[in-house]
Design a protein around this nucleic acid. Structure first.
Length: 825
RNA sequence: GCCGGAGUGGCGGAACUGGUAGACGCGCUGGACUCAAAAUCCAGUGAGGCUUGCCUCGUGAGGGUUCAAAUCCCUCCUCCGGCACCA
């Protein structure tokens, strides 16, 4: 049979040798700088993947991230865009210091050795980066701009220093930002975080809380990420209500989102850190041990048994003038609201729990719609809506309305004021570690806190440092670093020894890629051209941290007139994890697959192809060796098909777009080609579904294998289309085969094939015949057939007659070119 | 507890706006080639039934809307992710 055109090594065709051809093209791309983009003209497209942290080597997760980005980069280039596709290294951070402690290597040496390896691995994977734009965040050429931004922000009032309880990780021995504490544990090492009172530097991200919130809602980002950021910013609207104290002219301000329940407030609770708690302890020292205990409990994150103590003091409920007790309890946080609450046990689960424990009165003020609730019938707090009861002049009003009416009333009475609160806190950037950007601040006995003048930047990180993992910040012990002169008065002074959070580095690296400025962090014109990033791709673990900080940075830079945009990343794709044996790949589970091993065995194209094919990008991907072999088999099939049948390469395709082919078969092939182009283009561009794009390419190849006339010019062009469509996914094999059939160009400089609309559908179609919605028959008809003709035709069919025999036809529903449904009794 | 997302063959996953459920791949079965195997090529493959061509069932469970539901609505179950004394 003619189908068996190539079997095994009997015929003299060259084998598919992935190692050889991949290395050949990687060398070519490097030498020719094929993917560099020097111009900043024309339609731009900025595709960015999150840069890797400089630990030992590239893992499968990186390969997934970068393979997805590379498809888009190639596709957009072939579509005629001026594509920016850069890469670099996130090089500051704690692991470098830990390696220094464990192995005695200098963080710098460790980092640069790793970078060399990572670079080699990325090149071996054949990603189409513009390597000339590489950014390494631990280069002083880079981090000097962190310092420069710090000073600019400082001048603008976006940086401040304060002594406050901060999240301290005892293992990493440094302060962490709120965003870096996950369920009370350190995001990096998992140790329980404790609160420590230290002087810290903060970026005023809260200035942008409203803008960050408003814009996120409009963005083309995954819903999950948007929701996480919205929750993190945590805007709530409520009221501040002032409670007068009995026997004192002091007032206690509380914040509540349920002003409608004010008549149900039966006691007040202060945080143990509240200033009044402090005062009460001084007045009545017998309370001190209890309050100190509660303070300690609060310093450990996580929920503890609710405890409290009556202060002996009383306040007046401003709504009903009732005398209510003032308590101090461990469940009220100082950081949120005013640090004090009005407790409404009937309608708040926490207050309810506390009131039951300490036998405090519980008064229902919102009656649930279904029940006439009495105090003793309440087994849990009712937090829903209902009609007001026990609330004076507001009785009978629905609680939603009461919320507004009572707010207005309280404003009039001077009891309260409407207020908005956010959960978002300012970004603490001080880290008591060595391997990071030195904070450009000098402490002078004369002048106080002085920022380093711009001309003295960068404040270089000294290299002669001993990292022991003990004591305070390593920089504190470097005398030559600490001791300096005050830039203002010239007297002896001391440097700040904390370094910046490494998330500062990653908050603007995408700007540095787009242009490296000389006297500025970047060239303004180039930035205007390239920004914002059109498509950003990375892991969902950065949903809050990096993605929120970068948004803040963009807005802050806009406000110091360096940027014109409001948001850095137009579209975002968060890819899923790679799973093996039901668990995330990790060293501790021993289920790690090393990409290099896979490349050695199958080649980079197979690895990339498999990762793209196995699942849609946002879903977790199940690693299966058999699946990898399937993709390798497919590539070998492509290889044999093209080697055996490839004709001379043409710069312009013509036959496949001609309306009339030589015969039916040829028309069908043209339709197949056009449909495949349409499918692959849409899957890449509109849906990011690389798995279905590759599936349709596989279908296409299967079809071509069975096509009888492999010598026809239409078939030759079909092979050429196949290679062009395949190129973004598996560039090496596509480029090699193209060259072998006479292509002189880099495929990235070839135009992506267009499809012709008139050739997407055959003239004859298979119509589904249903009776009462059940498939009963198929009918081959001309696609333009009229409804009446079909109805007549379909009733003649034997299968149809059989099913409608003796039954009444109620109606017929015709969906053009799809189906006809006959409805019978 | 609150907020997201998802449940489809032996497995990974298709089915985009309601219109042939299971594309494509893996695995499995049969055939061709071979002394044989591997590789390759071709064909089959949701379950059950029998008269082998068709019938019945089938997208986590139950109900509903519709000529027609994996897809829309309601109730419930399970899994994954995020947040969590945030007043």
């Amino acid at each position: 049979m003619s189908l068996n055109f190539y079997s095994g090594d009997k015929m003299n065709f060259p084998e598919y040798n992935a190692q050889e051809i991949e290395k050949k093209w990687q060398k070519h791309w490097e030498k020719e700088k094929t993917f560099a983009c020097s111009a900043f003209r024309g339609k731009k497209y900025y595709i960015l993947e999150m840069f890797p942290y400089t630990s030992g080597s590239i893992h499968i997760g990186h390969v997934r991230n970068y393979s997805i980005g590379d498809v888009v980069a190639h596709y957009k280039r072939m579509k005629g865009f001026n594509v920016l596709h850069p890469i670099g290294f996130d090089a500051f951070g704690l692991p470098a210091e830990n390696a220094a402690i464990d192995k005695g290597t200098h963080p710098k040496d460790w980092t640069y050795t790793n970078i060399k390896n990572l670079r080699r691995q990325l090149k071996r994977l054949g990603f189409s980066y513009d390597w000339d734009r590489e950014v390494i965040t631990c280069d002083k050429d880079y981090y000097r701009w962190n310092q420069w931004f710090f000073i600019k922000f400082y001048q603008k009032g976006l940086v401040y220093q304060k002594k406050a309880p901060a999240n301290w990780c005892p293992t990493c021995r440094t302060i962490l930002a709120n965003e870096q504490v996950i369920e009370g544990n350190c995001y990096r090492c998992g140790s329980p975080v404790v609160q420590k009172n230290l002087k810290q530097w903060f970026f005023k991200i809260t200035n942008y809380a409203d803008e960050l919130l408003e814009e996120i809602e409009k963005m083309d980002w995954p819903a999950a990420v948007k929701k996480m950021q919205i929750n993190w910013i945590g805007k709530s609207k409520g009221m501040q209500i002032n409670f007068e104290m009995v026997d004192s002219k002091d007032k206690i301000a509380v914040y509540t989102t349920r002003p409608d329940t004010v008549f149900g407030a039966t006691y007040l609770v202060l945080s143990p850190f509240h200033s009044l708690s402090e005062k009460i302890m001084e007045d009545d020292p017998s309370l001190k041990p209890e309050v100190e205990m509660m303070r300690k409990e609060q310093l450990i994150k996580g929920e503890v048994e609710k405890e409290g103590i009556f202060t002996g003091l009383w306040a007046v409920n401003p709504a009903n003038r009732e005398k209510i007790p003032i308590w101090i309890a461990n469940y009220v946080l100082m950081e949120y609201g005013t640090g004090a609450i009005m407790a409404v046990p009937a309608h708040d689960v926490r207050d309810f729990e506390f009131a039951v424990k300490y036998n405090l009165p519980i008064r229902v003020v919102v009656s649930p719609p279904e029940a006439g609730s009495k105090v003793d019938s309440l087994k849990e707090a009712y937090t829903g809506e209902g009609k007001m009861v026990n609330s004076g002049q507001f009785n009978g009003i629905p609680s939603q309305q009461a919320r507004e009416k009572m707010s207005e009333w309280m404003v009039l009475e001077g009891i309260g004021t409407p207020q908005v609160h956010y959960k978002l806190r300012d970004w603490c950037i001080s880290r008591q570690r060595y391997w990071g950007t030195p904070i450009p601040i000098i402490y002078c006995d004369n002048c106080g806190v002085v920022s380093v003048p711009e001309k003295d930047l960068p404040v270089e990180l000294p290299s002669d440092v001993r990292i022991t993992g003990k004591g305070g910040s390593p920089l504190e012990k470097v005398r030559s670093f600490v001791e300096c002169t005050c830039p203002r008065c010239g007297k002896k002074a001391m440097r700040e020894t904390d370094t910046m959070d490494t998330f500062v580095d990653s908050s603007w690296y995408f700007l540095r890629y787009a242009s490296k400025g000389n006297n500025l962090p970047f060239d303004i014109d180039r930035i205007d051209y390239w920004m914002p990033v059109d498509q950003y791709i990375g892991g969902i673990e950065h949903a809050i941290l990096h993605l929120l900080y970068s948004r803040f940075f963009t807005k802050a830079l806009r406000d110091i007139n360096l940027l014109k945009i409001n948001e850095p990343f137009t579209r975002l794709l968060t890819q899923g994890m790679v799973i093996k044996d039901g668990a995330k790949m990790s060293k501790s589970k021993g289920n790690v697959v090393d990409p290099e091993d896979i490349i050695k065995e199958y080649g980079a194209d197979t690895l990339r192809g498999f990762i793209l094919f196995a699942a849609p990008p946002e879903i977790d991907l199940d690693w299966k060796k058999e699946g990898l072999e399937g993709v390798n088999r497919f590539l070998k099939r492509v290889w044999r098909l093209v080697i055996a049948n490839g004709k001379s390469w043409k710069d312009k395709l013509e036959y496949i777009y001609e309306e009339e082919g030589k015969n039916e078969k040829e028309n069908e092939l043209k339709i197949m080609v056009n449909k495949t182009i349409e499918k692959v283009s849409q899957d890449i561009e509109q849906r990011f579904r690389f798995n279905t794009a590759l599936a349709s390419l596989m279908e296409f190849v299967n079809y071509l294998y069975l096509y009888p006339e492999k010598k026809s010019p239409v078939f030759g062009e079909s092979l050429q289309v196949l290679l062009l469509l395949l190129y973004p996914f598996t560039p090496h094999i596509a480029q090699e085969l193209a060259e072998r059939i006479g292509c002189k160009k880099d495929l990235c400089n070839c135009r992506w094939p267009e499809y012709k609309r008139s050739l997407l559908k055959s003239k004859k179609i298979t119509l589904i015949v249903q009776i009462n919605g059940k498939l009963r028959d198929r009918l081959t008809v001309f696609s333009k057939i009229k409804k009446e003709d079909i109805e007549r035709e379909v009733l003649k069919r034997e299968k149809v007659k059989k099913h409608i025999q003796g039954k009444n036809i109620k109606k017929m529903i015709y969906v053009p070119e799809k189906l006809i449904n006959i409805v019978v009794d």
